[in-house]
């Protein structure tokens, strides 16, 4: 399938989305909610592009638009840039204190008039849903987008500590705006209103993971962990056995 992007022709595979094709060919299209390996979510709308097909032109989110043979794509027209600026403007109003969004606004030259900006607002989430997707991919499904309209947010059922959450922290890791709080102190990890007791390594005592995560791993591997060891100590254990074996050889 041949697709013309900004005047150059690229060949794509069936089922591929426009954004995937563009990323593969190192064409810059901004995005917040796209992650390689996940199907496009189409939530942040920053990856908007213009698609010309026959006589008609339309604006689409490239992360969810499957390519078709013969289409022409424009990624940086005045129209598109203006629309992206509008989106960033709205995101800036939602999360006025978020460093990442502020940087993005600066890059695009977006300034919000102070009468719109509520600097007291403590919000970092842009509701892109990447965390929800990551949790789903892990098979835990502990969090979800809840409510509608202005009360929409990411949370566990009824904001309670979810029994499905294993405390792995992948949601916090994939979040583009660092909106998810993961606190680790005194041998405890607190995330999504749930407090996990961290497992400490039986050899060195370093707190390294939650029991739920280790159970999850055991389940997938079909084994039972005999001893809780952090990665440095498992390495040391193998090293020691190597040492013993070599000692006998010499």
């Amino acid at each position: 399938m041949n697709v013309k992007i900004d005047g150059k022709y690229y060949s794509g595979n069936k089922g591929e989305t426009l954004l995937e094709l563009a990323r593969r060919n190192e064409i810059e299209i901004p995005s917040l909610c796209y992650k390689e390996g996940f199907e496009g979510l189409g939530r942040c709308r920053l990856c908007l592009v213009e698609v010309i097909e026959g006589n008609s032109t339309k604006t689409v989110s490239s992360c969810v638009y499957p390519i078709r043979d013969g289409i022409e794509v424009l990624t940086n027209t005045k129209n598109i840039v203006n629309m992206r600026k509008d989106i960033i403007f709205l995101l800036l109003l939602r999360t006025p204190n978020n460093g990442y969004i502020r940087k993005l606004a600066e890059e695009y030259g977006v300034k919000a008039p102070s009468r719109y900006l509520d600097m007291e607002r403590e919000e970092d989430c842009i509701l892109c849903g990447l965390c929800v997707k990551a949790c789903e991919k892990l098979g835990t499904n502990a969090i979800s987008l809840v409510n509608r309209g202005i009360t929409k947010k990411v949370s566990t059922p009824y904001d309670d500590a979810s029994k499905d959450c294993i405390g792995c922290g992948a949601c916090a890791e994939v979040c583009p705006t660092n909106a998810i709080s993961l606190v680790e102190q005194d041998g405890k990890r607190i995330i999504w209103n749930k407090t996990f007791d961290l497992i400490s390594c039986t050899r060195c005592g370093k707190c390294y993971s939650t029991e739920e995560v280790l159970h999850h791993i055991d389940e997938q591997l079909g084994v039972k962990t005999q001893e809780y060891l952090c990665e440095s100590c498992s390495r040391r254990l193998v090293g020691e056995k190597f040492k013993e074996a070599f000692q006998n050889l010499i």
Partner: peptide, 21 residues
């Protein structure tokens, strides 16, 4: 693949030789 990694760190704990950090 760092682009695909979601940072759950399960691989780090799963490696029996501790060769992932």
């Amino acid at each position: 693949d760092d682009e695909k990694c979601i940072g759950c760190k399960m691989c780090v704990s799963a490696c029996p030789f501790g060769n992932m950090t």
